[in-house]
Write a protein that binds this DNA or RNA. Structure first.
Lengths: 192, 192, 192, 192
DNA sequence: AATGAATGAGGTTTCATTCAT
DNA sequence: AATGAATGAAACCTCATTCAT
């Protein structure tokens, strides 16, 4: 009851934190279903809260989208760090990582799409998280390069772009089969 | 190949055809500037016609987007056909084609973006044109394969997906340099 | 070829007259189907002419509606005049007239409706024709009154209003059966 | 008869209810002034609320019209129920009711008009309320019939149609005087 | 005289965001 | 802190009417 605490940043009451989680979850679901033109009202309804609550947690719709993108980057970065701990052949480890990430993105294709279609604005606001991911990916590449199992001229951003491109083809675009394509891309990355 | 096309559709009065052209031109400009949420009213104003005229030519905003996508595919297909006529080394011809297409897409990044973000719907409505492009690309690949200068396992749809992916990274996404990346991709396509 | 005739009012070339007829016919059909919010374009298409032609004959959509109302009044007036020639019992003649008019209106319910819903404006522009109808109806009533077979206090405008009201109930309004109701109304008009 | 109505629908916040009332009031005024082609924006402005609020309460312009019709039926039904409580001569009670209703309709002529011109759709959506009115009217008629002061063959729907017809003549149609006409109609309903 | 393409004011509706409760 | 009603700018689209062909 004596919670006259001064919130410098975000101690966030337990229920508030729970709401935040629920909102993000719903946002994923709703954007996945309706693309970037899903409505905040839908997100709120799905989360079982009022619109006002959504806005308390995310100042704008864009901010919500940004957070989704950040989360994705954080997840991928976390996986990349785990990969760093592994002791297998470096390229194989990287390959496994990419396959798992692609799979995750595919199960989320519509959100991915919404994010791809989203203005550069959104990407810029997630730059820190993106850099972090690129940095860790860089370490994985360096290891593989030392092992001589990856093309010498590949950089972390190339992987990022290839994966980003792969995701952009995941919708339901006719003739496109991302699994096949990923096989090819991975093989292309391999040292000759 | 002589273009004795039979117009089953109405031949379109001269001024109407002119308007149609102007509308498409403006649409390109306006979508390029404002992305997929450009307004039809802006397209009309920019074209110097009334909104009604835009709607007479394109029943829906989506229809306009579809036509833009179709045009792009037609342009790329035309270039691909030209490339078929050339007598240089097949892979070099293909490389040149890809570079020119990438350049075109880049000068049009926002439209590209709008199209990428667009629902699968739009892509499906342009499927015929896409198939045509893929078909001609297939011929170019076949030649290069016979010459032994391209990876044996590359298919036309892989090229499509790589280019489509490349385009999706063209916005202003931080850290992404498509020219560099295209160099890499082309080199990856080359036979070892 | 020497048709430098001066058109004081409407000599109207034969084909023009034919067009005018076709337009009115189509207007009846189209207003009957879509009510007052039928579009001029529909009328034109149905008539097999361009919109411009419709406008050459009828300055505005309202003018077209007015003409439809006028025609109806003219038809009813003509029938009333014919009734005057008949030698049966005056009230019976009137009754027969009303029944036939109601039948006509019913087969035309939607137009009737459109006309009823239309502003007073329209009725005022058809006033002359309406007066003519009322006048002839007055003669029929007078005869019946002399014969003592109609209520003494009924006037022509009462008949008009009753019929107008009857028509207004003809749509598909639930529970309303205009034939039953007409029987009652006619019996009410009869002298006790 | 105590109004312990159970609200299955949400009880509606106090301010929301107030707004709803205001919107209906304005709708009456605005439809009265401009007929069926009044604009929702005008209704909103007149009510001092945003358009969005109008749409929150009534999904569609049509829904607003329907509610107006329902209200009218409810009002008339309420009056009819009051009339049932009265102990005067049954026909006189009915007559008084009709006169008051006609007066109300006249003061509302344009709305009445809009409703008359409206598609059957609208009437069908108000069928429940209409039936209720017809039912109560039926009781009034039954009493008068027992008293022998009304024509034996008149039914509730006849009264409805006569009144509905009367209303349809109320605009500014030339030559039509509804008060005169109502006198006649009432006299016609009286038992001979 | 006829055609139908063009016009553009105006209509309905949506939805991100604010704010009273 | 949460709620959801309210807001209103802006989006899309329609259609009576005009006008170039």
């Amino acid at each position: 009851m004596a919670d006259t605490v001064i919130h410098t940043e975000r101690p966030l009451r337990a229920d508030a934190r729970r709401n935040r989680e629920r909102i993000l979850e719903s946002a994923r679901a709703v954007f996945a279903e309706y693309g970037a033109n899903a409505q905040i009202d839908d997100v709120a309804r799905q989360a079982g809260v009022g619109v006002g609550t959504v806005y308390r947690h995310f100042e704008t719709k864009e901010a919500l989208l940004v957070e989704l993108l950040r989360e994705k980057f954080r997840l991928f970065a976390a996986r990349a760090r785990e990969a760093l701990e592994q002791h297998g052949e470096p390229f194989a480890v990287l390959e496994d990582l990419l396959r798992r990430n692609a799979q995750t993105a595919a199960s989320d294709a519509a959100v991915q799409h919404a994010l791809a279609g989203a203005g550069e604005n959104i990407w810029m606001q997630a730059e820190a998280e993106q850099q972090e991911l690129v940095a860790v990916t860089g370490l994985l590449i360096a290891r593989a390069r030392r092992a001589g199992t990856i093309r010498q001229d590949v950089e972390a951003n190339d992987i990022a772009m290839l994966m980003c491109g792969l995701c952009s083809t995941m919708g339901g675009k006719p003739g496109f089969d991302w699994r096949r394509h990923l096989d090819l891309v991975i093989d292309m990355l391999r040292a000759r």
